[in-house]
Design a protein around this nucleic acid. Structure first.
Length: 109
DNA sequence: CAGCTGACAATAA
DNA sequence: GTTATTGCCAGCT
């Protein structure tokens, strides 16, 4: 696949995130070779078309905190989705990254 | 063509 | 411990 844009890479990677597992923007960016481009990943999510079925709710901040409320139409919804997939949350409402941090299970895209 | 924006992250105070 | 600032890269105006 050609580089249609950094988004395609992000979409591809995010779409590989298994249920019950979460990834951070920085991690995705780092996997793509741009550890400083976490914003680009977030931007890709923002532009994330529903056609890709991107589990953007599985992509969270590095602090374990979910995306802002203005995203997803409510962080509560996102939290519920993750809980439904088996993700455990702290009393603070943050995701337990230490338990659900996703890592690459694929050799190549 | 130049500048602005942004679903983040890391560092400084 | 939190709050403020800078860096970063791709897309938009």
């Amino acid at each position: 696949m050609m580089m249609e844009g950094f988004f395609e890479q992000v979409y591809r990677l995010v779409s590989q995130i298994p249920a019950g597992r979460v990834a951070t923007y920085g991690q995705i960016a780092s996997l793509l070779g741009r550890p400083k481009s976490a914003k680009i990943v977030g931007w890709a999510m923002r532009s994330a078309p529903s056609d890709r079925r991107l589990p953007c709710h599985r992509v969270i901040k590095k602090t374990g905190r979910l995306a802002p409320e203005y995203a997803f139409g409510g962080s509560e919804n996102q939290r519920m989705l993750l809980e439904n997939e088996g993700v455990t949350f702290k009393a603070d409402g943050s995701v337990d990254l230490a338990r659900h941090r996703w890592e690459i299970t694929r050799d190549k895209f």
